[in-house]
Design a protein around this nucleic acid. Sequence first.
DNA 1: CCATCATATAGGTTTTTATCTATGAGGTGG
DNA 2: CCACCTCATAGATAAAAACCTATATGATGG
Lengths: 319, 319
Amino acid sequence: MDLRHISFRLLEVFMCVVKTRSISETARQLHLTQPTVSQQIKRLQETVNEPLIVVNQQRIHITEAGFALFQTCQQVFGHFDDYQDYLVELRGGERGRCKIAIVNTAQYILPKLLGPYSNLHPHVELPLEIGNRAEVLARFERGEDDIYVFSHPPSLEHAKAGRFLQNPLVFIAPMNHPLAKSSHVTLHDLMTERFLLREPGSATRMLFESELQSRGFVLSDTVQMASNEAIRVAVGSGMGLGVVSRHVLPAHDKSFCMLNVVDVQLASHWYFVVRTDRHLSHAARNFLRFAELNLEQCLDKEWVTNELHTLNHSLTMKT
Amino acid sequence: MDLRHISFRLLEVFMCVVKTRSISETARQLHLTQPTVSQQIKRLQETVNEPLIVVNQQRIHITEAGFALFQTCQQVFGHFDDYQDYLVELRGGERGRCKIAIVNTAQYILPKLLGPYSNLHPHVELPLEIGNRAEVLARFERGEDDIYVFSHPPSLEHAKAGRFLQNPLVFIAPMNHPLAKSSHVTLHDLMTERFLLREPGSATRMLFESELQSRGFVLSDTVQMASNEAIRVAVGSGMGLGVVSRHVLPAHDKSFCMLNVVDVQLASHWYFVVRTDRHLSHAARNFLRFAELNLEQCLDKEWVTNELHTLNHSLTMKT
DNA sequence: CCATCATATAGGTTTTTATCTATGAGGTGG
DNA sequence: CCACCTCATAGATAAAAACCTATATGATGG
C-alpha cells in the first residue's frame, strides 16, 4: 500500500460511505455523482490492496480492514482538526512566539510592556535578546527576530518603525560635585570634566557627540564603559560625569544627581522596528497592537509618544 | 485550509525538509530536484495559508505553525503505520473474522476444529451460524458468510467445495426394541416402523429417502422433528426409530441403540463450501488451511476424508 | 412484471499534481 | 573576488486525479 497517492479527499469520501453505508447517499451528500464515488472507493481499495467494503444485495458491509481504516481516518482527521484549532489560536495571537531584540538601554522600559502582555497571553513565547546597538543591528540585518527596539532606527528601506516613547538624556554627576546644586549649568561648564560614555555607535553617545560637534565643543577626557549600570555606579563614586537615558536612573538612588544643564535638551525616541521583507508572526503583530493600546497604562505617561497606529496600520495592510 | 487537496506525498516532502532543514538535501534524499521541493513546500504553505518555514541566510527555520504541522504529520503517519501493521496481521490470518454457517448436524463436529483454531489465533473472530439446510442455503445464496458446511453442497457454478469428513448415517431404536439385539436387520424389516425424521430437504432425510425410493420402499409412518436431539430423545423414549448422523450420538447414552442394518450403507460427506464470486477473508482462507493440516488431529481419524488440498489450492490460485 | 433504486463499468474531459530544465538572486568560504 | 552553495521563480510537460455522462446489471417493492 502506497500512501503517497492518497489524498485526504479520498479518505473523506470513504468515511462518508462508511457512515452512510451507501454509495448513492454519499454522492448526494458530497455533491458528486454515484459513479464517481464508486470509482473513488475502488481506487482506494486498489491502493490499500484490500477490500474495504463488500456490496451484497444493495447493502454495503464494511470489511474488517475497512472498519480499521475508518478508525484510522477518524484519528487522522482528529489530528488535523486539532491543528486547525492550533492555527486559529496562533492567528488570534493567543499562542505562538514573538522574538524581540532590544538595545541595552531599552531593558529599563520594555519589560513594563512585556509583563502585562505576557500575563494576558500566557501561551505566547517572548524570548528577549539584549545587546548593544551593534549587536542588535547585526541581528536586524540577519532578520533573526520579529521586533527590534532602537532609538535611532536603522534606515534600511525594508524596515518600518514606530515611535512610542521619548528617551530624554540627562547629565549625571556625583552628589558632591561642585555643579550639583547649581540651577544654571551650561554645556560649556562641563567641557573640562571627564565623561563616562557607552561605546561609540551607541545611540546615546551618538546623540551627545553630534550635539557637541554642532556646537563646536570637544570633550577633553572620556572613558568608555560597556553598560549604563557601570556608568551610573562609576559616576556615583566620583569617577566623572555621565550622559544617560532618564529611564536608566533608579528613582531613589542618592549617590549621584542630575545636573540642570540649561542650554541643551538632548532627547531621542524609542522605536519599535520591524522588517517589511519577511513574514511577521501573528504574535508579533498582536504584541504591537497591544502596545499601541496599552502604552499609556504601562509606561510613564509623561514620556509616551504613541505613534504606533501608523506602524500597525501599514502592517495590517500588506500581508 | 483545505485538506482535500493535500496528499500524503506532500506531507512526506515537508517532513523531510523539517528533518534535514534543507531543501536541497531533501531533494537529494527523495530523488527529486530542488525546485520541485521548493514548489511543493510553497504549495503546502498556500493550502495551510500560513508560513511553515522561513529561509534566512540559507538556513531554514521552522515556524511555530510549521513545527506543529510536523508533529501532526508524525502522528498521522504513525496511525497509518499502525494500520499497515494491522493489515499485515490480517493477511497473516492472525486477526480478522471468519463467519461460518453450518447445518444443524455439523454442530457436533465443527467445534472440534474451531476450538484448536481459535486457541491458535485468539484475535480471529469466529461467529458461527447454525440453521437447518434451508436456512443455511439461503445464507449461502445471499453470501452472508465466508464458509459454509454442508453435506450435499449446493451445485451452483460460483461455489467451490471440499470434502473433509464422512457422515455415516445409522439407524437408532429404543433399547427395548425387538430388533435391538439382532445382528441381521434388513431394511425391509423396518418398513412398518414409525420413523422420526428431520424436515424434508435435510441432507440426512434426503439421503435416506432416495435410498428407499431406489429400492422401492415407502415409509408408512413418519413424524417430522426439528432437531437431532429431539429425535434422539424421542427414540430413546420409544416413540419410533430414527436415522441420524453417527456423529450426533453421544458415546455413552444407553437409552437407545444402533441397529445392525446389513443391507444398506448410508453415508454422505461433510463439505466446506465457499463462494468463488466474492472475496474470501484472509481469516477464512487461513482457517481452511488450518483445517487441511489438522483434520486428523482434531476429528476421529476413522471418518476423515481430507480432500481440502484441492479446495485450498484453487483458492490460493485466484485472488 | 414493471418501475425504481443501488451499484458497476466504460469512456471521456478538465483540472491538478508532480515533475523537470533553465535561470536568477543571494550567501559562504577560501 | 570567484567558485560554489542555497533557495526561488518561470515555463513546460506528462501523468494522475477528479470528475462527468451514458449505460448495464441486480435487487426491491408494490
